[in-house]
Amino acid sequence: MAERKIFGLGKNVFFTGLVSLFMDISSEMVYPLVPLFLTGVLGTTKTTVGIIEGIAEATASILKVFSGWLSDKLGKRKFLMTIGYGVSAASRPLIAVSNTWFQVLTARFIDRVGKGVRTSPRDAIIADSTEKEKLGLAYGFHRSMDTIGAVIGPGIAFALLLLSKDNLRLVFYASTIPGIIAVAIIILFIKEKKRAVGEAKAPPRLSISSFNGPFRSYIVVIAIFSLGNFADAFLVLQAENAGISRELIPIVYVLFNIVYALSSAPLGALADKVGFKNMILASFLLYSLIYLGVAFSSSPIHIWILFPIYGVYKGMTDGTQKAYLAVLAPKEQKATAFGVYHTVSGVMLLPASIIAGFLWDNIGPYATFLYGSAMSLAAAVFFAFTGRQDRA
């Protein structure tokens, strides 16, 4: 009997999207406020912000390759998802009680450990539950659900800040609740897909050499781009620098996420038609132009224009990059492949964010964003000459 679809997608895809919606409500209640908490309340430098975000994301990414490999080896994707989301939910109150930047780093580290454990198995569950010709739509839908949560989260944060007179710690405490709901959905509704008899093979090798040439070339592209794709915390700081008040920062973030949420699914479906490589190339070029604009932004209106366009870029790229990866990766190494992808992009985030912070502190904000723009353009050129054209 065929599985009953929800919005034309498998149940696992739908409920995984719902999990991400609630976890992103939790995350985005916290994330846009952390750099303001660090610089405004704890008095840290921009370089320190870059180090904290870089270490946190690099930690998550290093773990993603191991969790992906373990998921392929054990065939236990749901279990690793539950552990990962649970750890992240438990980290929220730790930020609220922090009084030093090192305590914030510890809380962010724990949160990203959870992300590192859950992401590759989650992405593999989506691939396992989706027909090849619907991969772009499936990952686009997931990013839409994730981003709807990212719209709701800052909205809740904004309301709580108004009601509590800028009590950041209260927002951090409240963010625990949607995280717990996300874990409950995994336990109750995600169904592990059992391996067919005779499908099990030798444990996958934890080595990039076991993948084909197009996959390895794609990972190099992601590494180049990620070296200039520093933490979004710097966008938040530039928004404040350009004249956006602290109370309005979550609203700017909501606007960005509304566009991101509305564009992810249709742009994912469009990528299924025009080819993943073409969509990824277009996203790199758009990113370069956006960061060029941010580099020279000097008034609130520039931020109100550029943040929604950045949402379009996110809608073009996140799901499409994963769908392209799913086409390139062997079936028995899907989660390992996602782990390699996330690890490379995240490890690059550490030097990217440190470089961004250093440029900001020693030259100026414009240098930070010009650097990001140049690296994205370099990735586009390399991908244009090396990437395999492959439609779903």
Rank of each mutant, 00 (worst) to 15 (best):
L70E: 02
W360Q: 10
Y173F: 14
T317P: 05
K331G: 01
F7M: 14
A380S: 14
M81D: 00
F383G: 01
A107E: 13
I309N: 05
D318E: 15
R118S: 01
P250T: 02
G364E: 07
L9M: 07
S98A: 11
P178I: 01
L42A: 02
T106N: 14
A379L: 13
S71V: 03
Q389L: 13
V113Q: 03
K273M: 05
S67F: 10
V340Q: 06
Y324L: 07
G346C: 12
I305D: 01
A323N: 06
L370S: 05
D123T: 05
I52H: 11
K194I: 12
Y139G: 02
S376T: 07
L63D: 07
V151C: 07
I305Q: 09
G17R: 13
P266W: 04
R169C: 03
F172V: 00
V254D: 10
G228A: 06
T320G: 06
S175F: 08
A374T: 04
N362F: 15
R195P: 03
R205F: 06
T59I: 04
Y291A: 00
I280V: 15
T44P: 00
D128Y: 08
S120E: 13
W360P: 03
E199N: 03
R112T: 01
S129P: 00
L80F: 14
G346Q: 04
V252W: 10
F109R: 10
